[in-house]
Simulated scan of single mutants.
Amino acid sequence: MSVTFDLQSVRRHPSPRAVLALFKPITWFPPVWAFLCGAVASGVPLAGSVWLVIGGMVLAGPVVCAMSQAANDWCDRHVDAINEPDRPIPSGRVPGRWGLWIALAMSGLALVLGAALGRWAFAATIFGVLAAWAYSAEPVRLKRSGIWGPGLVGLCYEGLPWFTGAAVLSGALPGWPVIAVGLLYALGAHGIMTLNDFKALKGDRLTGVRSLPVTLGPARAARMACVVMALPQLAVIALLAVWGLPLHGLAIAALLAAQLAAMRVLLSDPRGRAPWYNATGVTLYVVGMMVAASGLGGMGG
């Protein structure tokens, strides 16, 4: 089945409200939170670096994440015409090629702001911008893979801003415990992104995107997502115990136990319960990130 998309629209310019919808502010929270976790994990007092922290949070969410959303919506306009035709581009509220120009302009803004925050932020921003386009755009379009696509998004939503927050605050390469914990939470975010793919199941099937819900089916994909979310947290708990932070590990273990209870509800109806789990289990997951960050910050990063 072929899907066509008409770039013509009666509207010549997008309204500010349509542009804001294109940027999806609700998606900014994960990278902003991860940046803040990384900053806490660095062990550097935040009170003395307020502008760095604010600038980094703006870079992670309203700039880089917003750019990635615009790029993804532009590259996914044909899929969205099936899954969510009321989105800004397929609905015509962002007409013509405005979605492309906005995504490109935000890419440039991201690089400028990243450079202003220092070499570590600039390097991370370059990676983030390239990753956003590699995820969405042809011919690479890593989102076609149920393995590489969610993995890249998890890395850029959780691991990259965590690393950036720690590096920007400390002004140096973070210590290996900070990097290791950030990578583990990024790995676990692969499962979160797999659950997020449930909402696009119909369009992904029709357009050849091989997400895990498409290739494995909703039930098996949900089980795999749960395993992928849980195992890295177990590794974090073990590492915190080894590093002399057993209370932090116990707190994360309690949060994981609550997630496991929520996972049972999710697995009873994966397609119907995926949005519910994203609002409950994922919240417990990211709270655990801050618990781990506070422990690492207390031991000096």
Rank of each mutant, 00 (worst) to 15 (best):
G188L: 08
Q8N: 12
L256H: 01
I102Q: 00
P213T: 10
V286Y: 11
A172G: 14
V94F: 00
G61F: 08
H190S: 03
G208A: 10
P275R: 06
V3W: 03
A60S: 14
A222G: 15
L267F: 09
A123T: 06
A81L: 15
L117W: 03
W162S: 04
W51R: 06
P90D: 11
L109N: 03
H13Y: 15
S294E: 13
G171E: 12
G175S: 15
V287S: 02
T207E: 08
A292R: 11
I252H: 02
P270S: 10
A47H: 09
V140A: 13
R273L: 05
A225W: 01
G272R: 09
V214N: 09
G217S: 12
A131W: 04
L109W: 03
L266S: 01
V168I: 13
P25A: 06
A18F: 04
W28S: 04
V140Y: 11
M289S: 10
S2T: 14
P232D: 08
L245S: 13
Q69P: 00
K143N: 14
L22K: 00
G149M: 03
L231G: 06
V214W: 12
M289Y: 02
L104M: 09
F23G: 01
F163V: 06
G55D: 08
S42Y: 03
Q8W: 08
G151L: 14
S268R: 13
P62M: 05
P14C: 05
P25V: 07
Q233Y: 02
K24S: 07
V40K: 02
K202P: 01
L130D: 08
A167M: 10
A241S: 11
R264G: 15
V3G: 08
L117V: 04
L247H: 08
D73V: 00
A189P: 01
S211Y: 10
T194S: 09
A39I: 02
W148S: 03
P232R: 05
R220Y: 05
L296K: 03
G297Q: 05
P213D: 13
V236K: 00
L187S: 05
M57D: 03
V63R: 01
A71I: 12
V140T: 15
S15A: 15
P232S: 10
V63W: 01
K202L: 13
A60T: 00
G92F: 02
L206P: 02
Q69K: 00
A241M: 12
G249R: 00
L117I: 01
I192V: 15
V178T: 15
L255A: 09
M289C: 14
T125S: 13
V291D: 04
W276K: 02
E84L: 10
A70V: 01
D76M: 07
R144N: 10
L100A: 14
A222Q: 02
G249I: 01
V64L: 15
H78V: 07
G118T: 09
V178S: 08
A71M: 14
F198S: 06
W133V: 06
M67G: 01
S91G: 13
V19D: 03
I192N: 07
T164K: 06
T283L: 11
P161T: 09
W33L: 07
W51T: 13
P150G: 05
W162Y: 15
T194Y: 04
L36A: 14
L113S: 06
L160Q: 01
G288C: 11
C226H: 00
A166R: 05
V282H: 08
G43S: 07
L52P: 00
V265K: 12
I192F: 07
A180R: 03
A71P: 07
D86H: 14
A21V: 00
A230I: 11
S107C: 09
R223N: 11
